[in-house]
Design a protein around this nucleic acid. Structure first.
Lengths: 168, 168
DNA sequence: TATTGTTATACTCTATAACTATA
DNA sequence: TATAGTTATAGAGTATAACAATA
């Protein structure tokens, strides 16, 4: 039933190979942009709806200080707007500005067009299969890493970045 | 035919999601190790056979100065051995030391066991399908990125990191 | 006490530019 | 001239620790 050791070892290599090539493609694609890959990731999740910084950090799998810095950068660039959470004086709510929504749209259009071009010899079915498999792999890693990292009791304050990746 | 825009856009998200979760899992798994993820990658390729630094940089998709630093680190840790290339006075050949081979084996055993555990509810077939799809995706990105980055003539000296990823 | 968020500091990984030595 | 490799420097992205304010 389980996965054979040789297959697991091979899969580790395939995962790291993809990491490398994606890093290279992303670096080439976004060279000279004002908004780096990390900030683009933040924009994506802010674009899904006004959120607390804590929630964003969880979804992105980064620590709170990192997200704080990213939000400050995006605010300085005029892409996000912060306001006090009316229900909690400690918390803020972060949302896209009109310029941020525009920026996000342009980023996504560019990425999508690039990938379409790179996969020009793929079938629609290939792409759908790949999306499904990547989702499955990410979910398995996410859930297992969480389960593994949280053996007993642990508070949000003591959680490390690897434990922050949100369940859904 | 081609891939639909919506599917391509979704696939971009799935790829970045995987990047994030792999980063988190890797960081958690190798916390406190003396040899970081980048050095582990170098060890892997050195382990495939004695190589020139230039070749290693190509395979890893990093620039020459980065690889030079990594090799120096690994040599200091006693994991690799350098010698002059007898056929080319400018070049060096890098190989694993016995300690490096041992280290590489331990790293791979640990990674494999971790992934096996994380994918404990997967079938052998799931894993094989995933390895196949990841390979296909990496190859498509690699080839397209190279083709895109090398429109006309360009020498190795002017190549950027994204152009360095080796064909095979 | 616990949580939200910030600042300070440091680490990892990477790149470009400038250089030496060899081909 | 071109290539192999190194050193110096800088930048992006991340983490931990220490802190202030609020719940």
């Amino acid at each position: 039933m389980a996965v054979a050791p040789d297959t697991a070892a091979d899969l580790v290599y395939r995962i790291f190979d993809l990491q490398r090539v994606v890093r290279c493609v992303a670096a080439a694609s976004f060279r000279g942009q004002d908004t780096g890959v990390a900030l683009q990731g933040v924009l994506r999740f802010v674009g899904e709806g006004e959120s607390r910084a804590t929630q964003l950090a969880e979804r992105l799998g980064v620590s709170a200080p990192v997200l704080s810095r990213h939000i400050a950068d995006l605010e300085e660039q005029g892409y996000v707007i912060r306001r006090q959470d009316p229900d909690d004086g400690r918390a803020q709510l972060v949302a896209l500005s009109p310029a941020g929504a525009d920026k996000l749209r342009k980023i996504e259009e560019h990425r999508t067009a690039t990938l379409q071009e790179y996969l020009s010899d793929w079938s629609q079915e290939d792409a759908e299969d790949t999306a499904r498999i990547l989702t499955k792999l990410s979910e398995s890693l996410k859930h297992s890493a969480r389960a593994h990292a949280l053996p007993a009791h642990s508070t949000a304050a003591s959680a490390t970045a690897s434990q922050n990746l949100q369940e859904h």
